[in-house]
């Protein structure tokens, strides 16, 4: 923790977190106009007519959406837009009523979550799932794919998997060093702070060399000092050739690191585009503020919700 802490002047207003180096944006991802469901030059994930209802409520109803390869894509939308539900559907943690979707050209419909992960599409969770009573190192080793020693009978013969285990351990230590968790490797994961758990979860996901990393609110509950290093890590994923899809509420972060933004509202994809342009899209403003936001209903500061202020902030930024 202390390694990441920056002295904060309590009098100065908190600057929005910015990555330490200027992110290199990937452009030219789409074909044709940037409209909902537009085709991508090289999609890694293609979703068609995926629908999920809970009783009478349609949580997700996505007609068509493509996630570009080798880029950072943000999935945004107001609370209840169905972002996490879509995440669960795409990763096999929930089953849609109907619809199909492909990852890397392979159909994922009906594929259980663990096989989705083995194909190289690894997710993290909104509520961090660090395995508290396992050490940080054990958490990391669990992430490695195709381990011989994970077979029940081969597990009894250590000579079959000892070398592999050492290789995994070296790789894990390397990742932990990058995430500044190497000094914690023998501690229980439960002893880490919330932000460190997020880092551990991300590092653990990288143990399997994924092609698509899906992060569900990677910044939620992380203090600003750690946010910067998290942002850098996400940018590094792209630099290493991975594709990233993440759900986020922090608009500043979305604008700074995302190459492409998909906006959901009420279960549907309502807008897509470059992060700077998409914020100007009337559909996005409607989704966050409601379609009657420009009618004067009198000053009521109490009605100014988190989203309203976030959007106002952004529009100010753009000017």
């Amino acid at each position: 923790m202390s390694a990441n802490a920056v002295p904060l002047d309590s009098a100065a207003p908190l600057e929005p977190p910015v990555p330490t180096k200027k992110p290199v944006k990937t452009t030219g991802l789409h074909i044709g106009a940037a409209e909902p469901g537009c085709a991508k030059v090289d999609p890694i994930l293609v979703v068609d007519n995926v629908r999920r209802t809970f009783g009478g409520l349609t949580a997700v109803d996505v007609a068509h959406v493509e996630v570009p390869r080798g880029a950072i894509t943000a999935l945004i939308g107001p609370n209840g837009a169905g972002k996490t539900t879509l995440f669960n559907l795409l990763t096999g943690f929930d089953k849609p009523d109907d619809g199909k979707w492909t990852f890397d050209g392979r159909s994922l419909a009906g594929v259980p979550a663990y096989r989705v992960a083995r194909m190289g599409q690894i997710r993290t969770f909104q509520l961090t799932k660090a395995l508290g009573l396992l050490t940080v190192m054990d958490n990391m080793l669990l992430g490695a794919k195709g381990q011989t020693g994970e077979n029940m009978f081969r597990a009894l013969m250590p000579f079959l998997w000892r070398n592999e285990e050492e290789e995994n351990r070296a790789k894990a230590l390397d990742l932990l060093t990058r995430f500044k968790l190497d000094t914690k490797k023998d501690d229980y994961a439960a002893s880490l702070s919330g932000g460190q758990r997020k880092l551990l979860e991300m590092a653990r996901a990288l143990m399997s060399d994924p092609t698509l990393v899906m992060l569900d609110e990677p910044m939620a509950g992380v203090n600003p000092a750690l946010t910067q290093s998290l942002l850098d890590h996400i940018l590094n994923l792209k630099a290493q050739g991975m594709s990233v899809l993440f759900v986020e509420h922090d608009m500043h972060m979305v604008r700074h690191i995302a190459d492409w933004v998909i906006v959901m509202a009420e279960g549907k994809v309502v807008a897509e585009g470059d992060p700077h342009e998409v914020m100007q899209n009337p559909a996005v403003i409607d989704a966050y503020l409601g379609s009657h936001h420009d009618e004067d209903i009198g000053e009521d500061p109490a009605a100014e919700t988190e989203h309203v202020s976030a959007i106002k902030e952004l529009l100010d930024d753009e000017r």
């Binding site: 990763t91 943690f93 979550a113 663990y114 096989r115 992960a117 083995r118 690894i122 997710r123 993290t124 969770f125 799932k129 660090a130 395995l131 508290g132 009573l133 396992l134 054990d138 080793l141 669990l142 992430g143 794919k145 381990q147 011989t148 020693g149 994970e150 077979n151 029940m152 597990a155 009894l156 250590p158 998997w161 285990e165 653990r204 996901a205 143990m207 399997s208």
Partner: peptide
């Protein structure tokens, strides 16, 4: 022996949180 092997590690992970273990491809 089996609990200090990678098999045992997966088993102990399941005790903590099965969804997390599932998300790692087990």
């Amino acid at each position: 022996q089996i609990m200090r092997s990678p098999w045992g590690r997966v088993i102990k992970g399941i005790r903590e949180d099965e969804d997390a273990v599932r998300a790692l491809g087990k």
